[in-house]
């Protein structure tokens, strides 16, 4: 049941597709659901939590607890194969592999980003980044040079 709950801002994807749903188990008669935020400030967390409670209550589970898990931090690598396919079908380019996380100082990147993404509309690999920050915290904005359409790209984190 918890696996069918969808993301409020990407409604074709379930929380499981996104890798936000970390665990569902029963502890002494209570359904315990663990979710992790994509970004620290993700305003959709409250809605996700409420949707989960609503779905499980509607399914007849009276005692439900939704817990937040902060560690390990969410990464786009947790978006499932199904999730990536659904993103592309919805016109949003799925993320590439997440960047390495070095233990020491984080290297500075001042050049244009090396990120690439094929256009989810026409399939052309010839696309350019317009902005690293899009309409939601998790997306960047790109434009296709072949079909000229702008599109969103879930940025690697």
């Amino acid at each position: 049941m918890a696996e069918t709950v969808t993301d409020p801002e990407l409604p074709t994807l379930t929380l499981a597709d996104l890798g936000v749903l970390r665990d569902v188990r029963i502890e002494r008669g209570t359904v315990v659901v663990e979710i992790t935020p994509t970004y620290t400030g993700c305003p959709a967390m409250g809605v996700m939590r409420a949707d989960l409670l609503h779905a499980l209550h509607s399914a007849g589970h009276r005692d439900v607890e939704v817990r937040t898990v902060l560690a390990p931090a969410w990464t786009t690598d947790w978006i499932t194969v199904t999730g990536r396919r659904k993103l592309a079908e919805g016109g949003i380019a799925p993320p590439g592999p997440a960047p390495d996380r070095p233990e020491g100082p984080i290297p500075l990147r001042l050049g244009s980003t090396r990120r690439t993404a094929a256009c989810p509309l026409c399939g052309s690999p010839d696309t350019v980044e317009i902005s690293e920050f899009g309409a939601t915290a998790c997306k960047a904005l790109r434009r296709c040079r072949a079909c000229l359409e702008p599109f969103e790209h879930v940025k690697e984190i």
């Binding site: 560690a71 931090a73 969410w74 984080i106 500075l108």
Partner: peptide, 27 residues
């Protein structure tokens, strides 16, 4: 403190974007 460590680990991913964005504007 595991809470601080978790907040920091998430924050690093976000702050890297902030710093590099501002750095590119300065350039």
């Amino acid at each position: 403190d595991s809470v601080l460590a978790a907040i920091a680990a998430k924050g690093v991913n976000e702050l890297t974007y902030h710093r590099d964005h501002a750095g590119r504007w300065l350039l």
